[in-house]
Nucleic acid binder design. Structure first.
Length: 489
RNA sequence: GGCGCAUUCGUCUAGCGGUUAGGACGCCGGCCUCUCACGCCGGUAACACGGGUUCGAGUCCCGUAUGCGCUACCA
């Protein structure tokens, strides 16, 4: 039987970074097994429905490269893939359970349920539905039940959990788990608004969509026994289960909005590469060997093993993500980066530079930043003439002979036809030794003149990229303003 | 409260009965150097605790502690 897995988000907002990892693990597993990855939208809670959330989810999944084989928009043989379009299917299955005696009608109001729970809790008991005292098929007469059903009176369908029964299942990640049925609540299956709850819809759809492996977050582990009971009631074979460890905040609570960004979109906006995010998130809770960090998408697919997924939760450490982003910044093709960077520059109102120029700038500056867009902050002087000069740097390295040297260099540089690193280096070194100075005695003032700053890439490679005209013009500008005492610091 | 799941350096992890407990991020130091970085070299730091089982336990079993999750007509 070929592997089929699904990612089943609820369209209640943006895609959470934890959701991304769940989707990713499903995807990696499917592709590793030569199976299918399905997207199913679980929009059975009308009160939490967010307009366009589904579109956002799909968009960001596509961006990340987690492409689904079946789902909204792409179709498939087991649709529809949006649960609100499958209401009749759930109703039919709820009726099936009703007929088989595995489910029953209940008529309690939310106030009555609340009062019941409060009472049980005060007694220190498990606050689960008390079938024997509440308003339902078992406590009401047959005629009253019929009457209520025929009237407009709201009702729900609940799962009849058998007494004295041990529910067993095996989790690929956690092993055998057994729960006593006395711990399991008579879960509502069909809500009074006619929509199914997660539990019913999920089980029915997983079965009908021929899902072979249910890979989901650990928060679902406690309700899995309910699902097992449902499969058994229907007489269906169980899929395999794998419950993933949670992603955690620094304080080890479940990853949440309060302590930093959780939306994948936020990270995209900040300039993280999708490759870095995927690589990083994949390694939170799973590692093929433990002695390697960088894996491309295909390598992740090839080495993915559900059995190797960890049991314990993993803290989301932004420092390591940053490091990983840097790794990809260094690794990526500069042609691709130049195109991205051009968009960034234009967005900030800069004129259009040639791809060739941008590539050169990126090549020498990327090792100094974490994000591509930071190159602009690091060396704005590569895109416009410096107008302000670092005062501290000036005071530290500007000597009484510096102006004379600058004038000499201006002449010397103007005679260099091939304005490249080696020739610039040679010419400057010459000037230095003629005056009994060290190269750095000249380079520092020169850096100030050319860039206005103390930090930057190698001086001569910077000058080579800027070009002869630009460099000469900057030196001239500095000399003029220095002599007129109009330099701005 | 009840039930469940978990627990190796600060963080992500390797380990699947015998290891000087390995790698990575971060941090610290050094080298390189025209600055800032990159890079390279080195250092820091962990098996939650207590009992078993065993010749031998981070690895297996049982407790305890701690953390997290669930306990809805939310997913």
């Amino acid at each position: 039987m070929s592997v089929r897995v699904r990612f089943a988000p609820s369209p209640t907002g943006y895609l959470h970074i934890g959701g991304l990892r769940t989707a990713l693990y499903n995807y990696l597993f499917a592709k590793n097994q030569g199976g299918k990855f399905i997207l199913r939208i679980e929009d059975t809670d009308r009160s939490r429905f967010v307009e366009n959330a589904m579109e956002g989810l799909i968009e960001i999944l596509n961006w990340a490269g987690i492409l689904f084989d079946e789902g909204p928009g792409v179709g498939g043989d087991y649709g529809p893939y949006i649960q609100s379009e499958r209401l009749e299917i759930y109703k039919k299955h709820a009726n099936l359970l009703l007929e088989k005696g595995n489910a029953y009608y209940a008529f309690d109001t939310s106030e009555e349920l609340e009062a019941m729970r409060k009472k049980l809790q005060e007694k220190g008991l498990n606050p689960k539905y008390d079938r024997k005292t509440m308003k339902n098929q078992f406590t009401l007469s047959e005629t009253e039940v019929k009457q209520r059903l025929n009237s407009d009176e709201p009702y729900v369908v609940r799962l009849l959990v058998p007494d004295n029964y041990k529910v067993h299942f095996n989790d690929i990640i956690r092993g055998d788990i057994t729960v006593d049925s006395s711990e399991i609540d008579d879960q509502v299956l069909l809500k009074s608004d006619g929509y199914p709850t997660y539990h019913l819809a999920n089980v029915v759809d997983d079965y009908l969509m021929k899902i072979t492996h249910v890979i989901r977050g650990e928060e679902w582990l406690p309700s899995t026994p309910k699902h097992i009971l449902l499969y058994e009631a229907f007489g269906w074979d169980l899929p395999k289960f794998a419950h993933l460890p949670l992603l955690l905040n620094k304080d080890r609570s479940k990853l949440s909005k309060r302590q930093g960004d959780v939306a994948v979109e936020d990270y995209r906006q900040k300039g993280y590469f999708k490759e870095a995010i995927i690589n990083f998130v994949a390694l939170l809770g799973w590692n093929p060997t433990g002695d390697r960090e960088i894996y491309d998408f295909q390598e992740l697919i090839d080495s993915f093993k559900l059995e190797k997924v960890n049991k314990g939760g993993a803290v989301f450490d932004i420092e390591k993500l940053n490091w990983m982003n840097f790794q990809y910044l260094m690794k990526k093709d500069t042609k691709e980066l130049a195109i991205q960077f051009k968009t960034i520059l234009i967005g900030k109102g800069y004129p259009e530079f040639s791809n060739d120029y941008l590539e050169k700038v990126i090549k020498v500056h990327r090792e100094r930043v974490t994000f591509l867009h930071q190159i602009l902050d690091f060396c704005p002087y590569m895109f416009q003439k410096p107008e302000k000069f670092d005062k501290e740097y000036f005071e530290k390295y500007w000597k009484d002979y510096s102006l004379a040297i600058l004038k000499e260099l201006l002449i010397k540089y103007s005679k260099i036809d091939n304005f490249v690193h080696d020739d610039l280096h040679k010419a400057t070194l010459e000037t230095a030794s003629e005056r009994g100075l060290k190269l750095k005695d000249i380079i520092h003032p020169l850096r100030l003149v050319i860039t206005g700053r103390s930090a930057g890439a190698g001086m001569f490679e910077t000058m080579e990229i800027l070009g002869k005209n630009e460099c000469l013009s900057r030196i001239q500008y500095f000399i003029d303003n220095y002599e007129k005492n109009t330099l701005v610091f």
